[in-house]
């Protein structure tokens, strides 16, 4: 049992007061380890809220540096951070909010060769990338290692998210078999995105991480939550685990991790799509 300091009691008082979180829940948060993939539009709010919540260890992986075009939605980065590694910029803000936590930064592009090693030991993963190869890679690696994760994506005015608990709930591939061919789907860089929806979706993902760690409520599993910010319509589409799923089904065809058609690890200078 953690002996909370006076400062911690005050800092986390609004969590401790919640019947469903309480002292035990805050203790779980302080002992939890969450990895955020991408320090962009989704990763920024998720990182800030998880840091504020007192998630004890937060990893954040991104190989990019801050560009001025990121600042419209990637709220962990400030104008002064242009040219700085996104993970360093994000870590600085997270520690400024809460010096109580440990932030681990990874200036790497997540790929088949490094993902297993990087995600090992984390309790929950937030996928905040917007490129399909990495989304499928995160899904497959999490299914293989049994680590739950939150999938998230935003484009234009729309967002979508689902939570996957490997072995229990539908995985991303159960519904979306494989990554669309490159250029079939536009990225934020081509299609644009309303900045605030990054906050809407990233905070949902952070909420799922907090719920998973504390055991509060029901996770967004076996369902895809989508929204259209133009009408502010939210929809929850029920999904089910598929026996025929190529990664979590009865006879999986994917048995080891491979990078998708583009070998992004070799494209460090020109990533397939900048994380939103």
């Amino acid at each position: 049992m953690i002996d909370f300091t006076e400062e911690q009691l005050e800092r986390y008082s609004r969590h401790i007061l919640l019947d469903d979180v309480g002292v035990d829940g805050q203790e779980k948060l302080l002992q939890a380890k969450v990895l955020i993939v991408g320090a962009g539009g989704l990763g920024s709010p998720a990182a800030l809220y998880l840091a504020a919540a007192g998630v004890g260890t937060i990893g954040i992986i991104d190989s990019d540096s801050v560009e001025i075009s990121n600042l419209q939605r990637q709220i962990a980065h400030f104008t002064k951070d242009i040219g700085v590694f996104k993970v360093d910029s994000a870590a600085e803000k997270m520690q400024a909010i809460n010096p109580d936590i440990t932030v681990r930064t990874y200036k790497e592009y997540l790929c088949a060769a490094n993902i297993t090693k990087i995600i090992a030991g984390y309790d929950f993963i937030i996928d905040g990338t917007d490129n399909f190869p990495t989304k499928f890679l995160v899904n497959d690696a999490c299914i293989f290692t049994g680590i739950p994760f939150s999938h998230g994506g935003i484009l234009r005015f729309n967002g979508q998210t689902m939570t996957v608990v490997p072995g229990e709930s539908a995985c991303y591939r159960c519904s979306f078999r494989e990554a669309p061919p490159p250029d079939a789907v536009p990225s934020c860089a081509q299609a644009g995105v309303l900045g605030a929806i990054a906050g809407m979706l990233g905070t949902i993902q952070a909420t799922e991480a907090l719920k998973y760690i504390t055991g509060v409520g029901e996770l967004l599993t076996n369902g895809l939550l989508t929204f259209d910010a133009r009408t502010l319509t939210f929809r929850k589409i029920n999904l089910a685990r598929q026996k025929s799923c190529p990664v979590c089904g009865e006879e999986p065809s994917i048995t080891h991790l491979v990078d998708a058609e583009q070998s992004v690890c070799e494209l460090k200078s020109e990533p397939v799509a900048a994380p939103c």
Partner: peptide, 11 residues
């Protein structure tokens, strides 16, 4: 904070 401390004591 009095309730926070009460909850900590109970825990």
């Amino acid at each position: 904070m009095n309730l926070v401390k009460t909850k900590v004591a109970f825990s």
